[in-house]
Simulated assay, not measured.
Amino acid sequence: MYTMTIAFTTFFFAFLAIKFCKPVAVEMGLVDKPNERKQHSGHIPLIGGISIFIAVLAASLLWLPDTLELRMYLIASAMMVFIGALDDRFDLRVRIRIVGQIIVASLMIYGVGGYVSNLGNLFNQGDVTLGSMGILFTYIGIIVVINAYNMMDGIDGLIGSLSINTFTAIAILFIMSGQTTYLSYPLIIATAIMPYLMFNLGLFDKVFGEDTKKIFMGDAGSMFVGLSVIWLLTMGTQGEQASFRPVTALWICAIPLMDMLAVVFRRYKKGKSPFKPGRDHLHHILQRTGLSSKQTLVLISTIAVVFSGIGLLGEYFEIAESIMLISFITLFMLYNLIIKAITK
Rank of each mutant, 00 (worst) to 15 (best):
Q39S: 04
W63Q: 10
S41T: 05
L61G: 01
W63V: 11
L46E: 00
F53A: 13
P23L: 11
P34H: 07
A55Y: 05
H40G: 01
F20N: 13
M28A: 10
E69W: 08
A59F: 15
E69L: 12
G49L: 01
L68R: 13
V26A: 07
E36F: 02
M28L: 07
L30Q: 06
H43I: 04
E69P: 00
L57H: 11
I54G: 01
I44C: 02
M28W: 03
L61N: 13
A55F: 06
L30A: 09
C21F: 08
C21Q: 15
L68E: 09
A58M: 14
E69T: 12
I54K: 15
R37S: 11
K38F: 06
K19C: 01
H43E: 11
W63L: 05
F53W: 08
N35P: 00
G48Y: 12
P65V: 05
L68T: 10
E69I: 04
V24F: 03
L62S: 04
H43K: 07
V24L: 06
G42C: 08
A25W: 01
L46C: 00
G49T: 04
L30M: 11
F20I: 13
W63H: 14
L46V: 01
S41W: 05
L62D: 03
L57K: 11
L57T: 03
G42T: 14
W63G: 01
S51K: 03
H43D: 13
M28Q: 03
I50W: 06
L64G: 00
A25P: 00
E69D: 09
I50S: 05
L62G: 05
W63Y: 09
P23Y: 12
N35R: 08
V56Q: 14
C21I: 04
W63S: 07
K19S: 08
L61V: 03
E36A: 11
S60I: 13
S41D: 09
A25V: 01
V31P: 00
P34E: 03
P23M: 06
E36S: 03
I47P: 00
R37D: 12
L46A: 10
I47G: 01
W63A: 12
P23S: 04
H40S: 02
C21K: 08
I44Y: 14
K22P: 00
I54N: 06
G42D: 10
L61I: 15
V26H: 08
D66K: 10
R37M: 02
V56C: 04
L61E: 06
L64Y: 15
K33D: 02
A25K: 06
V24R: 04
P65G: 13
F53V: 06
V56G: 04
H43V: 04
P65L: 08
